[in-house]
Design a protein around this nucleic acid. Structure first.
Lengths: 250, 250
DNA sequence: CGAGAGTTTGAGTTGAATCAATTCGCGTGG
DNA sequence: CCACGCGAATTGATTCAACTCAAACTCTCG
């Protein structure tokens, strides 16, 4: 399957020509990136539009003191560099969390697709808007919520995004992250993340065994953390909505 | 002057036709928004691409407990809704900090301009990339830096952005914000912001009298706060660079 | 079965918040 | 021209959420 096509179809109705275009883009070239290594590093020139096909990635920056701060998660269907042509060099790094399969698209081809299809251009713009919305919400989340809300909110977001691409069922999803990863993403220490996770477990809101995470009551979790999915710009779930979508707060 | 044209010219070289296009866009309609009121509120439909001509604005969200978190500052030349056509409704609000003059552009006209000029499209993409880069850095800044670095970093960013549009000279600039505004932007309490500001003053790094802010040693402030301007995507200062740009860290 | 990464626990510390006044700056009206 | 009033800035005392440090425990995998 082509996760980019799947995503764009949630935004706009695509015609055959656009299906072909997107399939062509994704078929160009691909690569497997081992868990823990980087797709691209801060300062490097940008030579490809990269698309996550499978696995999780993260955008991150390194701080002066060596810590790293994760500023976004990349899930299947997410574009790393939609602005490859315009922007010269990376202002952040992108790492693979688990083994990550990604498609490498020629920036020129990508650009051409936007020129050829007005609808694709619109889908791109929509996607860019969603990315910005997400980044703003992360800013808010990390700046203004206490540890509990911060973690709960992030779990809600992950759940919601994964449900939208069919990777979460009944509040349960595979997540290749550790509590340490979550700490890097929330700006907390692993120790404190652990205490909050135990709190969530104690309240019967969360199971987290190995790489499997289950939210037992997504609605309540959303309420507790102030999570409201508007900023994700997932206008409505597609017809083939997963059962899990029924539990998601409106 | 047309601040959007000025900005785009820092990105790409524009030809006469593009000058005319941009002037046409901005001349369409305009509005004055009183200090403290909103240009647009979360949840509202988007009917215009709005451009800040003069004055400061801020993107913000309200939290459950009534606090508000500012997630971005909008300065002259900044677009509020470049994605108006694609995105249905606002996922955040935009407020005027001081009296703000903005141009209202028909989304269709705006879109048309991107179709007619490849260069404008590129400039748009570049600008979107810069906005995303800025938002990521805010995420990092608020998540990972202690109060001192957080505030210093934000002052550096403001200084740098203002210098780029000729509104900062010798580290000094007009800023229509209060310590309370800065607190809402940094996710700190006004009381704590005040203590940090006094610290900065005490170290001879900052003067802040009324609405006038002066950074006495931008380079050192950048060093102390881990500020590096790469994420702002201001490739180089234009030929008519202000003297102040000489003091900016590379 | 050992090793290493990840998770858990506990004790002590601290940066920032909270609460509560007080002071300053300035625009307005008497 | 001065007194008032209000928003902003400042100060001090106290509390608390999250960090630090340090150790032990538990997986999982070679």
């Amino acid at each position: 399957m082509n996760p980019l096509k799947a995503k764009f179809e949630r935004y706009v109705a695509l015609e055959q020509a656009e299906h072909d275009l997107l399939d062509h883009l994704v078929r160009t070239d691909a690569r497997v990136v081992p868990a823990g290594s980087d797709l691209i590093r801060e300062g490097e020139g940008i030579h490809f539009v990269k698309l996550v096909l499978d696995g999780w990635g993260c955008r991150y920056k390194l701080l002066e003191d060596g810590r790293r701060q994760i500023v976004a998660f990349l899930l299947p269907g997410d574009l790393c560099n939609p602005d490859a042509l315009a922007v010269g060099e990376m202002d952040h790094s992108i790492g693979a969390i688990n083994e990550l399969h990604c498609a490498l698209i020629q920036p020129e081809l990508f650009d051409q697709a936007c020129i050829e299809s007005h609808r694709l251009r619109q889908a791109m713009a929509y996607d860019a808007g969603a990315m910005l919305g997400m980044q703003r919400e992360w800013t808010l989340n990390l700046a203004a919520r206490p540890a509990f809300g911060r973690i709960a909110h992030m779990l809600c977001e992950l759940h919601y995004r994964l449900a939208a691409i069919g990777l979460a069922v009944d509040g349960s999803f595979f997540a290749p992250i550790t509590q340490i990863t979550l700490a890097e993403a929330t700006g907390l220490t692993p120790v404190h993340v652990n205490r909050v996770v135990q709190d969530l477990r104690g309240r019967g809101l969360l199971s987290w065994r190995g790489r499997q995470i289950t939210l037992h009551d997504p609605t309540r979790l959303a309420l507790l953390s102030g999570f409201s999915p508007r900023y994700l710009h997932l206008p409505r779930f597609a017809l083939g909505a997963t059962p899990a979508s029924q539990q998601l707060p409106a």
